[in-house]
Design a binder for these strands. Structure first.
Length: 109
DNA sequence: TTGCTGACCGACG
DNA sequence: CCGTCGGCCAGCA
């Protein structure tokens, strides 16, 4: 749209993630055309809390389905509870049936 | 301005 | 199998 910033695109894709679905940093980066920019995606998530519009950063995890960013939600169980409230099973900071919940932007969009 | 860092990923030895 | 390094882009001292 208007904002072609890398970050804005990241937020846009993150908000498009359906409830109960999960995507990975790498998947978003790849969708944006910068596969190697997975780190920037995580960084964008860090800033996501400052955005006016809510960004479901809890639906974005690393390629292993690990809640790598759970520590950035203000608590260690916030992210897990958010995911479980959406029907996503989480155990030991890892998403169960990750493949089933996985949502690929390049494929779905 | 330069340089380091960061919620990552893949390649290499 | 495990440790290390490069790449990508933006923010901050």
């Amino acid at each position: 749209m208007e904002n072609d910033s890398f970050f804005e695109k990241v937020y846009m894709v993150a908000r498009l993630v359906p409830k109960g679905r999960i995507t990975s940093y790498g998947a978003i980066a790849e969708y944006l055309g910068s596969k190697g920019s997975a780190r920037m995606v995580g960084w964008a998530m860090n800033k996501s809390h400052f955005q006016k519009e809510y960004v479901p950063a809890h639906r974005v995890v690393n390629r292993f389905g690990l809640l790598s960013g759970k520590h950035h939600f203000g608590g260690s169980d916030i992210m897990r509870q958010l995911l479980e409230s959406e029907g996503v099973e989480v155990a030991n900071d890892q998403i169960l049936n990750f493949e089933t919940h996985f949502w690929n932007p390049s494929k779905e969009l």
